[in-house]
């Protein structure tokens, strides 16, 4: 028990929570936008992989860090455009298209990696984002290290959550996106294009997913590995449900999951870690997430038209 308390009062634990949460926040927001418009985007896992690769590769090829993020964003949007084309105007099964996009994007990333670096045995490193030093705040003892020693991309993740909430609830655009996921007939009857709104949401959402992936190679680590996304995309799908399709709650969910993850890594190094197989610790965040999901999502309001294609002029 004292080990857990030791971990919780260490500043590095809280810094790790924010760092682990960042990619989840980006991708969860991206998925949330798609689902709020009525489209389930299972391409998330592959789009994150491709984003991780594209951002890192851009920097390796000589771009700056921010242009690298932009490259990841655009790459994600391109996959999003494909997903949107297949699921919205063509009305194909969102499950099948999403899984297909995940396979396509993942394989494309690996293929492009092999093409670009045919002979390396270990992937080259880039200079990743460095923690921002914020005057005064970063110098506060303990707190400065725990909360205010993050990279610009982490701050951008939190900024994104606020921005998405603002757009969804405080602008006509957000209203239209939410209505497209609730009752597309209502959107149509008010003279808006359901297809344009849904495609736009999927494209923007996919862009955010790719940025979430890029965080891994450009901020958390400094190079690209196969399998580095490692199911984070699927976690984000669950986080959207956990967050009841609301950006604020989804952010909270990402932090909670990151908290469990940071905790289990540290628990492995305690004396308890010598006794219990490490796989048990790896399991903790998932088990707790499932429990939290059960508790939190009971009364969640699923967008009523989620996964329902809309065809104009059909009776």
């Amino acid at each position: 028990m004292t080990e857990i308390i030791d971990i919780l009062i260490s500043a590095s634990f809280w810094a790790a929570v924010l760092r682990i949460a960042s990619p989840l926040i980006f991708a969860t927001l991206g998925e949330l936008i798609c689902e709020r418009a009525g489209v389930l985007n299972l391409g998330i896992e592959g789009i994150m992989v491709f984003g991780a690769f594209a951002g890192w590769m851009a920097v390796y090829a000589g771009f700056g860090l921010w242009p690298g993020v932009l490259v990841a964003l655009l790459a994600g949007m391109a996959f999003g455009a494909l997903h949107a084309l297949l699921t919205v105007p063509f009305g194909l099964s969102q499950h099948v298209v999403g899984l297909g996009i995940t396979m396509l994007a993942t394989s494309s990333a690996y293929y492009a990696y092999r093409l670009a670096l045919p002979e390396v045995t270990s992937p080259p490193r880039i200079d990743p984002f460095q923690p921002l030093h914020i005057p005064v705040l970063s110098d506060i003892p303990w707190l400065g290290q725990a909360l205010f020693s993050q990279t610009a991309l982490t701050w951008a993740a939190f900024g994104c959550a606020a921005l998405v909430a603002l757009v969804l609830y405080r602008t006509p655009l957000g209203l239209a996106v939410r209505a497209a996921g609730e009752n597309p007939q209502a959107v149509e009857a008010q003279g808006l294009s359901v297809a344009a709104i849904r495609m736009g949401a999927v494209i923007v959402g996919s862009g955010l997913m790719a940025v979430g992936g890029a965080f891994l190679t450009m901020s958390a680590f400094s190079s690209f590995f196969f399998e580095m996304v490692n199911g984070r995309g699927w976690i984000c799908i669950a986080l959207v449900v956990f967050g009841a399709w609301k950006p604020g709650k989804a952010l909270l969910g990402a932090l909670l999951f990151a908290g469990f993850d940071a905790l289990q890594i540290r628990l492995q190094q305690t004396p308890m870690g010598q006794l219990v197989p490490y796989q048990v610790f790896l399991m903790i965040p998932y088990v707790l997430s499932i429990l939290a999901l059960i508790l939190m999502s009971r009364r969640a309001e699923v967008p009523a038209a989620l996964m329902t294609p809309f065809n104009r002029g059909e009776r």
């Binding site: 939410r178 209505a179 008010q190």
Partner: peptide, 16 residues
């Protein structure tokens, strides 16, 4: 053609 999860005002404002 109304969205049940939204308020009356939001439904009226949609697209205006």
């Amino acid at each position: 053609t109304l969205s049940g999860n939204m308020t009356v005002l939001e439904n009226i404002l949609l697209g205006t």
